[in-house]
């Protein structure tokens, strides 16, 4: 089951950090900061271009791990973290993939809960890391029953 897929990785997928997507995203979180959406402000900035809001990478395509069959319902997002080596620039092309870092179960008041830890990677075209992010998804017993194949 889930324990067996620890360590599995997806194939890298090329993504473009599209200006329009960044702009829509910035507005959707109520943060239309000029450094994210305005070309002139970006050019005048220390980065010489626009940057993406820190949680934007959550929306990119990280490919698939064929053995991972998660339901679309009933998952709880428990924790989320991002680590940046530098800001993500608008317009750049990056390679994205993800990895199953861990899976463990705990017993609590609501029965046993499963914790799935995934790590995602964003690399520039030279394969240098721009950011990583880690996510902990919580799966209750009902969800896990649906995963038994």
């Amino acid at each position: 089951m889930l324990k067996g897929i620890i360590g599995k990785k997806s194939k890298k997928v090329k993504n473009t950090v599209e200006a329009g997507a960044v702009k829509n995203f910035a507005f959707s979180i109520g943060d239309p900061s000029p450094l994210y959406i305005d070309e002139v402000t970006g050019k005048k900035s220390r980065y010489k271009r626009r940057i993406a809001p820190p949680t934007f990478p959550f929306t990119l395509d990280y490919g698939v791990i064929p053995e991972l069959h998660l339901p679309t319902k009933g998952l709880i997002h428990g924790e989320q973290s991002f680590h940046y080596y530098r800001p993500l620039f608008v317009g750049e092309e990056i390679f994205c993939h993800f990895e199953i870092k861990d899976y463990y179960e705990k017993f609590g008041n609501n029965g046993s809960m499963g914790f799935l830890v995934t790590k995602r990677y964003g690399e520039d075209l030279n394969r240098d890391l721009i950011y990583t992010d880690e996510q902990i998804l919580i799966l209750n017993e009902v969800v896990r029953k649906g995963l038994i194949l």
Partner: peptide
């Protein structure tokens, strides 16, 4: 964000 950047953001 023009003075620096968010290096780590955990929630």
């Amino acid at each position: 964000m023009n003075e620096g950047f968010i290096q780590d953001y955990s929630i």
